[in-house]
């Protein structure tokens, strides 16, 4: 039967299954969400009237939107660089031959297998202001005299949530970095040693050029993950104190499922999708062009 199909027609037929999946699971939901964002959708109320851009203007003018977006950007600004740098440092250590490496390598993956809601609960207990282990430890070490209310003060709550997020996120970037470092030929390091290169020189001139593409992938991935972070902040602080740890993803959930304003929730989701795209383009634009060119 394929004899009758010629040229580009065959190509179209072959990509049809993949296109159908994308249509069903990506394009249709996205289109539906866009449609929803221009209507008032409340499951309790009759009708779905068209409301134009009012859902968008309502979201943009909301104090809560500004606040939660700012919190999310702060989270990205602090956690993504730390995760990237720590993953490189830990991978560099783990690539070396040392006693116990066989145990340590799988051990760093432990946070990855713990569901994020459980991670939030674990850290909530650790940071608990009345009976948390961190306060107990600091107190026994003589670092603090009074227990710190980690989760009910603005700055300490932000700090605690970021620590938990970094802890939960680290394993995957470590795996990526380890994979990139493993691919570096060891004779390059041997040659550098013969030439009298320091450890810093080896990292700068051998390791970094080989892992920088992976570093970009980690930055993009972690930026998007932080953008949609939800479980950890909410398990730890419920968004508080005040709105100090309220994230934009919670605002989408709250608008849609708590306040039953599915139109506004969809408008916010569309805004976030647009912002995510801008982020990705900005990151790619900021990367030195030779990194992108070497992949082509």
């Amino acid at each position: 039967m394929f004899k009758k199909v010629r040229g580009s027609s065959l190509a179209y037929i072959l990509i049809l299954p993949a296109f159908a999946l994308i249509l069903i699971f990506t394009l249709y939901p996205f289109g539906r969400a866009l449609w929803t964002s221009f209507h008032r959708i409340n499951p309790v109320l009759p009708g779905n009237p068209f409301v134009g851009f009012s859902n968008y203007t309502s979201v943009f003018s909301s104090y809560y939107f500004v606040k939660s977006l700012r919190n999310t950007l702060i989270m990205i600004g602090f956690t993504v660089p730390i995760i990237t740098i720590m993953s490189i440092a830990i991978s560099r250590l783990l690539i070396e031959n040392f006693y116990g490496r066989g145990i340590l390598r799988p051990a760093v993956l432990i946070p990855w297998v713990i569901p994020s809601a459980i991670t939030g609960l674990i850290w909530q207990w650790l940071f608990n202001g009345s009976y948390g282990a961190i306060n107990a430890l600091l107190s026994r070490m003589g670092v603090i005299s009074d227990y710190i209310p980690w989760l009910t003060e603005v700055l300490t709550a932000k700090f605690a949530v970021m620590v938990a997020f970094i802890w939960a996120q680290l394993p995957f970037p470590i795996i990526l970095m380890l994979a990139a470092m493993t691919a570096i030929p060891s004779d390059l390091y041997d040659a550098a040693k013969v030439d009298g290169a320091t450890a810093f020189d080896s990292f700068r001139y051998i390791t970094w050029p080989h892992i920088r593409t992976m570093a970009v992938i980690v930055i993009i991935y972690e930026t998007l993950t932080a953008f949609t972070s939800y479980s950890i902040p909410y398990a730890m602080t419920g968004g508080g104190p005040g709105t100090a740890t309220s994230m934009i993803s919670y605002y989408i959930w709250s608008l849609s499922f708590d306040q039953l304003q599915f139109g506004k929730g969809a408008a916010l989701a569309a805004i976030i999708a647009g912002l995510s795209l801008i982020f990705i383009f900005a990151i790619i634009k900021a990367i030195p062009s030779e990194i992108m060119l070497e992949e082509e």
């Binding site: 309790v44 104090y63 603005v154 508080g240 104190p241 005040g242 709105t243 100090a244 306040q259 039953l260």
Partner: peptide, 16 residues
């Protein structure tokens, strides 16, 4: 039910 989350968010902002 739809109002309660909004009220709670306002209270949280006042508390902070």
């Amino acid at each position: 039910g739809a109002w309660s989350p909004f009220m709670r968010s306002q209270m949280m902002q006042a508390i902070a």
